[in-house]
């Protein structure tokens, strides 16, 4: 990937100048902008985006190339969400959009007009931890911590997916009720890599929350 944009600016420069406002004043973030269009003949220009991040309405003006991950980190300065591979292979960028976990590196920010995004900062705060965050602390579910925000967003979603009856590769009877076994949880967490190898402790943290919920 070239680091220099078509106008000779660095990519980071393009991203930074694309930022205009991050306001809580937007009126109708949830209205879909069906029909929104940048004119192909005029060439790429910044486009507006209104969406909800951690419960707040946010308005941005973005180069269409901006990924959801870069919008969160570089424009909204929500640096909890991490960039590992930038290619969907590591899960460090996992966030929850409209209740479902996704890789924010493989999604354009503009594709999230009207969506509700939850990042690690929105799950809990240092003073008021989400139960899954507290369980990660209690069980040493990390070492360096780089993969941790993605792990926690995934872990919260995994328990919801099991409860909702979404089958996995290790589910025995896919027509029956699915139990939150360790095998189910670790298979579903395979999209989150951890170089420090905290996997066993992550599974312990998840098991604690799953048992508390059942």
């Amino acid at each position: 990937m070239s680091a220099i944009g078509p106008d000779g600016m660095t990519r980071r420069g393009v991203l930074a100048t694309g930022a205009v406002t991050a306001a809580m004043t937007a009126t109708n973030a949830r209205a879909r902008v069906t029909g929104a269009k940048s004119d192909p003949a005029a060439g790429p220009t910044p486009m507006p985006l209104t969406f909800e991040v951690n419960g707040k309405l946010v308005e941005l003006s973005l180069d269409p190339r901006t990924t959801l991950l870069d919008a969160l980190r570089e424009h909204l300065r929500l640096t909890g969400t991490k960039k590992g591979c930038d290619h969907g292979q590591c899960g460090a960028c996992t966030v929850i959009v409209n209740g479902q976990r996704i890789n924010s590196c493989l999604s354009l920010a503009l594709m999230h007009e009207g969506d509700a995004v939850t990042t690690i900062e929105g799950l809990g705060t240092p003073d008021d931890l989400h139960p899954m965050q507290a369980a990660f602390v209690e069980h040493d579910g990390f070492q360096c911590g780089y993969c941790t925000p993605g792990q926690i967003c995934s872990a919260v979603s995994v328990l919801q997916e099991i409860a909702a009856g979404v089958p996995s590769h290790v589910t025995g009877d896919i027509t029956g009720k699915i139990a939150a076994t360790r095998a189910e949880m670790t298979e579903r967490m395979s999209g989150n890599l951890c170089r420090c190898g905290a996997y066993a402790n992550i599974a312990d943290a998840m098991t604690q929350i799953a048992e508390a919920q059942s």
């Binding site: 969907g88 899960g91 996992t94 479902q100 976990r101 996704i102 890789n103 493989l106 999604s107 995934s154 979603s157 995994v158 997916e161 089958p167 996995s168 590769h169 589910t171 896919i174 027509t175 579903r188 395979s190 999209g191 989150n192």
Partner: peptide, 19 residues
């Protein structure tokens, strides 16, 4: 059509399959 469910969940990751 269980073969279809099985094939899908054998691919990619939970995050990717959501998109």
């Amino acid at each position: 059509y269980a073969v279809l469910s099985r094939a899908i969940v054998a691919g990619a990751s939970g995050q990717l399959r959501n998109k």
